[in-house]
Measured scan of single mutants.
Amino acid sequence: VSSEIYQWVRDELKRAGISQAVFARVAFNRTQGLLSEILRKEEDPKTASQSLLVNLRAMQNFLQLPEAERDRIYQ
């Protein structure tokens, strides 16, 4: 997982004009609270716990989908 993931998520929230709650639900089936905590802490993926890595990997995989497909999912 790239250490850029945190910025990618922030950029996607702005680009798509969606809330953290929507992104958390569709990208990795978690709550806004968890996403907020992940973004606030910005732990280095190289030293992250296994559970954090699973979530970061799910977010990264979601962000690799084509933009149009992500936008459809947000609706």
Rank of each mutant, 00 (worst) to 15 (best):
W8L: 15
Y6E: 00
A24W: 02
R40K: 12
F23R: 04
R25L: 09
R30T: 15
A27Y: 04
S19A: 06
V1F: 04
A27F: 08
A58N: 11
V54M: 14
E67T: 14
L63E: 03
R72V: 10
D71L: 03
L13R: 02
D71C: 02
R57G: 09
E42A: 11
I73Q: 15
I18M: 05
G33Y: 10
S3K: 14
R40Y: 11
Q7T: 15
L13Q: 03
D11N: 15
F23W: 05
I38H: 00
T47S: 11
L52R: 07
R10S: 06
R25P: 05
Q7W: 13
R57D: 09
A48M: 08
L13P: 00
M59A: 08
G17D: 15
V26T: 09
N29T: 08
A58D: 13
Q60R: 08
Q75L: 11
L63S: 06
S36A: 13
D44E: 06
D71T: 05
R40P: 04
S51K: 11
A16Q: 00
R15E: 03
W8C: 15
Q7F: 02
I38M: 10
L65Y: 09
R10F: 12
L13E: 01
S19L: 02
S19F: 02
E43C: 10
P66R: 07
Q64S: 12
R72A: 12
N61F: 05
R30K: 12
S51W: 08
N55Q: 12
Y6S: 00
L35Y: 03
F23H: 03
S3T: 14
V9A: 10
R30P: 02
A58T: 09
Q50H: 11
K41W: 06
P66M: 02
A24F: 04
L13M: 15
A58F: 06
A27R: 00
L13F: 06
Y6I: 04
Q60N: 10
E69L: 07
Q60S: 11
K46C: 10
S36H: 13
A21Q: 11
L53M: 13
E69D: 13
R72T: 09
D71G: 04
A48K: 04
I18D: 01
V1W: 00
N55M: 10
A16R: 03
P66T: 07
M59R: 02
D44G: 03
N61A: 13
Q7M: 15
E69A: 09
F28Y: 05
I18T: 06
L56W: 00
Q7K: 15
K41A: 11
L56R: 02
Q60F: 08
E12K: 03
S49H: 08
R72Y: 07
A48N: 02
F23Q: 01
V9Y: 00
R10P: 01
K46N: 12
V1E: 01
G33W: 13
K41Q: 09
I5T: 02
S3P: 12
P45K: 00
V54H: 13
K41T: 11
S19P: 14
D11K: 12
E43N: 06
R15Q: 02
F23M: 02
E67N: 10
A21G: 12
E67W: 05
A58V: 06
Q32G: 12
E69V: 08
E4C: 15
